[in-house]
Amino acid sequence: NQASVVANQLIPINVALTLVMMRSEVVTPVGIPAEDIPRLVSMQVNRAVPLGTTLMPDMVKGYA
């Protein structure tokens, strides 16, 4: 099963993503693939993302 990107903490809106904010985990439904974590660094989410939430492509500005 493919690992997805999961919030490692509350990720506020309009804050640049850092490695420490994200972890990889096998979850259902599948979200952004874990291998895209380096690409996500410095991008921003378009809504607050609670701890443990799977990041979906539509949550990250400029990802999709």
Rank of each mutant, 00 (worst) to 15 (best):
E35W: 13
P12T: 06
L40G: 01
M43P: 00
M22W: 03
R39M: 14
A16S: 13
N1T: 15
A48L: 12
S4W: 02
R23P: 02
K61G: 08
M43N: 05
V49A: 05
N14S: 08
V49K: 01
L19I: 10
N1L: 15
S24E: 10
Q2K: 14
D58P: 06
T53L: 08
A48T: 14
S42Q: 11
V41R: 06
A7N: 01
D58H: 12
A3N: 07
M56H: 08
Q44I: 10
V30Q: 15
K61L: 14
N8V: 08
L40I: 12
V5S: 03
Q9H: 07
G52D: 09
S4Q: 02
P33W: 07
V27M: 08
D36N: 13
M21E: 00
D58W: 13
A64C: 07
V60S: 02
L51V: 12
N14I: 03
L17K: 00
V20G: 14
Y63S: 04
E35L: 10
T53R: 11
V20S: 15
A48Q: 15
S4T: 04
V5Y: 02
P12R: 06
L10E: 13
G52R: 04
V6N: 01
P57L: 04
M59P: 01
I13F: 11
P38D: 10
P57A: 15
M43H: 11
V49T: 05
L19G: 08
M21K: 01
K61Q: 13
Q9S: 12
T53M: 15
L17D: 00
M56E: 06
L51F: 12
P12V: 04
L51W: 12
L40P: 00
E25Y: 06
I13C: 08
I13K: 15
R47L: 08
Q44D: 04
I32Y: 01
I37R: 08
V15P: 00
R39E: 06
V20D: 15
A48V: 14
N1P: 14
L17F: 03
T28K: 13
E25P: 01
Y63G: 04
A34T: 06
T53I: 09
N1D: 11
G31D: 01
P33L: 08
L10P: 13
A3P: 13
V20E: 14
D58Q: 10
V45I: 08
V5F: 02
R39W: 07
D58C: 06
L51E: 14
Y63T: 03
M43K: 12
N14Y: 08
L19R: 15
T54K: 04
D36A: 15
V6C: 04
R47N: 08
A34W: 06
M21Q: 04
L55A: 01
M43Y: 10
P12F: 04
V5A: 09
V49G: 01
L40Q: 00
K61Y: 12
Y63Q: 04
M43G: 04
V41D: 02
V27P: 00
V6R: 03
P57D: 06
V6E: 01
V49P: 02
Y63W: 13
L19H: 10
E25S: 10
M22R: 00
N46I: 12
P29N: 04
M59A: 06
T28Y: 14
V20P: 15
V20Q: 14
P57S: 08
I32V: 08
V15I: 15
V26W: 12
P33R: 09
V6W: 02
R39A: 12
Y63V: 04
N46S: 14
Q2V: 13
T18V: 05
Q2I: 14
I13Y: 13
N1S: 14
V15D: 07
A48S: 15
V6M: 04
A64W: 07
N46V: 12
L55D: 02
A3C: 06
A34H: 07
V30D: 08
L10W: 13
N1C: 07
G31P: 00
R23T: 09
N8T: 14
M22K: 00
G52T: 02
V27N: 03
V41W: 03
A64Y: 08
L40H: 00
P57M: 06
P12W: 04
G52P: 01
N46K: 12
P33E: 04
V6K: 03
V41T: 06
Q44R: 13
P29Q: 05
K61S: 14
S24D: 07
P12K: 09
A7I: 03
L10T: 11
M21T: 02
E25R: 09
P29A: 04
T18K: 09
T54L: 04
M22A: 00
V15Q: 14
V26S: 10
A48K: 09
P29T: 05
V26G: 04
S4K: 01
D36P: 00
R47D: 06
A48E: 15
V45M: 10
P57I: 05
A34N: 05
P50V: 06
V45A: 05
P38G: 09
T18L: 07
G62Q: 09
G31L: 02
R39Q: 11
M59H: 07
P38W: 10
M56W: 05
M21D: 04
D58A: 10
D36E: 14
P50E: 12
I11K: 01
L10C: 07
N14V: 03
Y63L: 07
A16L: 08
L17I: 13
A64H: 14
T18S: 10
P29R: 04
V26N: 13
E25H: 08
Q2G: 14
I32K: 00
T54G: 02
P33M: 06
V6H: 02
V60P: 01
S24G: 15
